[in-house]
Structures are given as structure tokens and as C-alpha cells.
């Protein structure tokens, strides 16, 4: 009844997209690029859920996708506002510039 693992190409595509996003988050220093990487991770998940939902003929997954898109939009809206505020102070969106908090 469920999407069998290791036999469906969607798993590999999704895992690859998600990993690219995670790598981007880990190595890039530009806050905007980090936000974009996070977007990529979320959309990889959306693709996977949509595929499973189609395979199972169940609507629950599609509802999850719609909500995930909405949440991602809200997250980016807040994220851009925060980054804009930081840019005003330092004229840069490089995360290495923001290291004032240390213990």
C-alpha cells in the first residue's frame, strides 16, 4: 500500500534536492542564500509528499503540502524582514558579520 523504498526514483531525487539544500545551509555564508537553501529543503519534502499522496490516492498528504507551502511563505516573509533589519545596521548580509554573542 505504501510507496516501496529503493525502487522509486522519486526517493533519490528528493534526497538529492534535500541534501543540496542542507549543504547550502552548511557552507554558504550569505543569509539570503541560506534562506533559499531552506526553501529548497522544504520544496523537496513537498515533492515527496505529493508523490506519496498520489500513489496512495489519499488527500491528507496534499493538505500537508498546501500547509507546508503556506508556512514556508510565512517563514520567508519573517526571515527577509529580519535580514533587512540586519542589513540596515551593518550594510552586509554575511552571517560571519554577526558574531557579537559569544560565551
Amino acid at each position: 500500500m505504501t510507496v516501496s523504498f529503493l525502487t522509486n526514483w522519486v526517493h533519490y531525487l528528493v534526497a538529492a534536492l534535500f541534501s543540496v539544500g542542507l549543504l547550502g545551509f552548511l557552507i554558504r555564508k550569505n543569509a539570503l542564500v541560506i534562506l533559499m537553501s531552506i526553501e529548497l529543503m522544504l520544496n523537496a519534502v513537498n515533492l515527496y509528499v505529493a508523490k506519496v499522496s498520489l500513489a496512495l490516492h489519499s488527500g491528507a498528504g496534499l493538505v500537508l503540502v498546501v500547509f507546508a507551502i503556506t508556512v514556508a511563505a510565512a517563514e520567508v516573509a519573517v526571515g527577509l524582514a529580519i535580514i533587512l533589519n540586519l542589513y540596515r545596521a551593518k550594510r552586509s548580509v554575511d552571517v560571519d558579520m554577526f558574531t557579537g554573542l559569544k560565551g
Binding site: 541560506i34 519573517v78 529580519i82 535580514i83 540586519l86 554577526f98 557579537g100
Partner: peptide
Amino acid sequence: NEASLKYLI
């Protein structure tokens, strides 16, 4: 500001 950036990411 820095706290909110770290929290967000």
C-alpha cells in the same frame, strides 16, 4: 537582531 537571525536560521 543577531539573536533573531540565529534563531530563524
